[in-house]
Design a protein around this nucleic acid. Sequence first.
DNA 1: GATGAATGAGCCTTCATTCAT
DNA 2: GATGAATGAAGGCTCATTCAT
Lengths: 207, 207, 207, 207
Amino acid sequence: MTTASESSSHNGSAIPRGQGGDALSVAAREIFAERGYHGASIRDIAKRAGLSLSALYYWHASKQELFAGLMEDSVNDYVQACDAALRGCGDDPAERLRAIVRATVDYRVRRRVESAIAAREIRNLETEHARRLAALRESATRLFQDIIDEGVRRGDFHCEHPTEARRAIQAACNAIPQWYDPDGDVGPTELADRYVAIAERIVGHRP
Amino acid sequence: MTTASESSSHNGSAIPRGQGGDALSVAAREIFAERGYHGASIRDIAKRAGLSLSALYYWHASKQELFAGLMEDSVNDYVQACDAALRGCGDDPAERLRAIVRATVDYRVRRRVESAIAAREIRNLETEHARRLAALRESATRLFQDIIDEGVRRGDFHCEHPTEARRAIQAACNAIPQWYDPDGDVGPTELADRYVAIAERIVGHRP
Amino acid sequence: MTTASESSSHNGSAIPRGQGGDALSVAAREIFAERGYHGASIRDIAKRAGLSLSALYYWHASKQELFAGLMEDSVNDYVQACDAALRGCGDDPAERLRAIVRATVDYRVRRRVESAIAAREIRNLETEHARRLAALRESATRLFQDIIDEGVRRGDFHCEHPTEARRAIQAACNAIPQWYDPDGDVGPTELADRYVAIAERIVGHRP
Amino acid sequence: MTTASESSSHNGSAIPRGQGGDALSVAAREIFAERGYHGASIRDIAKRAGLSLSALYYWHASKQELFAGLMEDSVNDYVQACDAALRGCGDDPAERLRAIVRATVDYRVRRRVESAIAAREIRNLETEHARRLAALRESATRLFQDIIDEGVRRGDFHCEHPTEARRAIQAACNAIPQWYDPDGDVGPTELADRYVAIAERIVGHRP
DNA sequence: GATGAATGAGCCTTCATTCAT
DNA sequence: GATGAATGAAGGCTCATTCAT
């Protein structure tokens, strides 16, 4: 689903690289996604990675650290994807909204597995990690909100409750991993088109 | 299992004889909501209910059963609320959509606590219970979908992808418990109005 | 297997009579036999008797007491059967040996169920009960031993190690409940004949 | 699983690292023998072995598995002892009977402890293990029966009911651990002689 | 005679973690 | 880089027993 090499595509994460390290990350992602933080046992993670339990402790300081690393990894990835998408835009709110929705849908599809975890399991992070992650999330939320507010201000978007609009759009995108089937008929691009359309309707975009 | 005496909050002691069952349900709802299925310990549930662990087992056969009872209770409630709301409507799709969105928002606000659990934790139910709950859920989904499809057929709603529309509306409503503050400025009725408006936009309702 | 009325056929036991009381004794006998003392749960006993757990405590002071009552009941029965059998004999050791073996085989067949428990589970009796039961047992053992010793003294039996002979005879009889099928071809009388023959061989009886 | 270091008896502490497995087997044998399967607590087993409860689970998957391992170990040992004893014989039934009785008595004395458990507690084994053990037992029983039947066929043994004869012999030997005192006057060899004599009488051996 | 509700101790098992190698 | 052996805390659950009715 996610590949081992994927986690090598960027840095800044808490997860070291190497043969065993990657296998562990992959296994951890899967098992945390399947069973949630408390339902997952690091024994099972090590087993699925084909390593001993002690090896896991060589790579990661604790279950909490392993989990937090995964989450941060994933959310970092998302924020950077948003930034990149918006850097390629002018300042037209509609264009920017389309770009960020595209980036969001793309992320939810690409990182379906951990994306689903992140949505449900932040509450299991201890303070320090939780703070960092909450901050990252909020920064993404602000991106959304700023775009919408600006669109409203300019008279391009017409909606009475921009906060609710933002929540609705994000909720719709966040729910994608719950039902999306990567082997189904709808490809990522077509899916993004559909959610872009929904978002434009929610904000009341009239060109 | 549903609680009339829910008001007698958990003061830590002095549960009158014979009322242990209710106290347990209340405590279980809270703790499952706070920590999720695997994160919740039945010892803690019993403690919060002011009863012994063994008393919990007098009332409920297992953690799983206790949890499933709560979930079923709650989802049953929702389905009945939807049915009731739609029974009071004519056959105008727009009216029916408004009614079911109102019922949904109302439910998410009224039963914020277990509603949040249900959304995240069904996967922890074992087959038999899971089947029953999935069926209940689907029946609610079908209500939504039928209304939207009928609106499109009649030419009252204009949307190319009615399934996606339905998903977006449901996702938006489902997310409410994640942020809604019952002590905030927005009351349940006003909230419902806002989500009704969003839903009408998503399906492209033009009167 | 054993009948409720059976336990009314004598007195002196710790088990009161009455509707519920009998049902409990029967159920207890079965369950203790199936699972042993520690493996049996008084909940299951009450359930099989069709009574509530509290009712069991009306009839019996504790699990230990219930169990001990059964055992004493059964061993008393055996000792009395031996006495009766020997009272009907002259003082010929061979005749007496035949009588006591017959009584023993008969007892093992008639009270197959609790007889099997008694053999294995005395160690689970607490001191007071254990003492009484051990005494009863020993008295039966002495009956056997005296007969054999007397036979040897008189020159009717020829065996070098009368204690071992007694042990072998008793062990053979005690093992009957482990394999005997009351619905099989061999009836109790024929079975007794066979064990009488074995016993005579073991003690080296030559007429 | 079999114990070379059995001599290092349970002194309550200081099990050297890496030798926990043996200590556990020894302790388990003792405690299961003293209290039976259901009466034994694995906490007590671990304690007597001088290890933590978790260490027990490092070595054995469950109480059931630990117990089954012990039983199988012991019965395997017996079957092999019988085979070896018979391999050293000619085909004279009397000689063979003497050899197998000797092997049986020897086994009951040597492995007094677990031998007593095995006799009483097989019923506590779950299907898979139970099947294997029952098969092993039957193979030993068949050895006995074949010898006796052949003796009868040849006219060396004279008994009307060879099955009962076999049962009586086995029962007598099986009962040895219940009373035998290794520190008493009768040594294993003398004991075997006595039971050989009893067995020959039971089958009616006339040279 | 009998019951429903409740308890505390103990059960088997799994958990995340550590230590020595 | 990795492992095998061991741990203490906590998990869900069952036990024999009691109390009030």
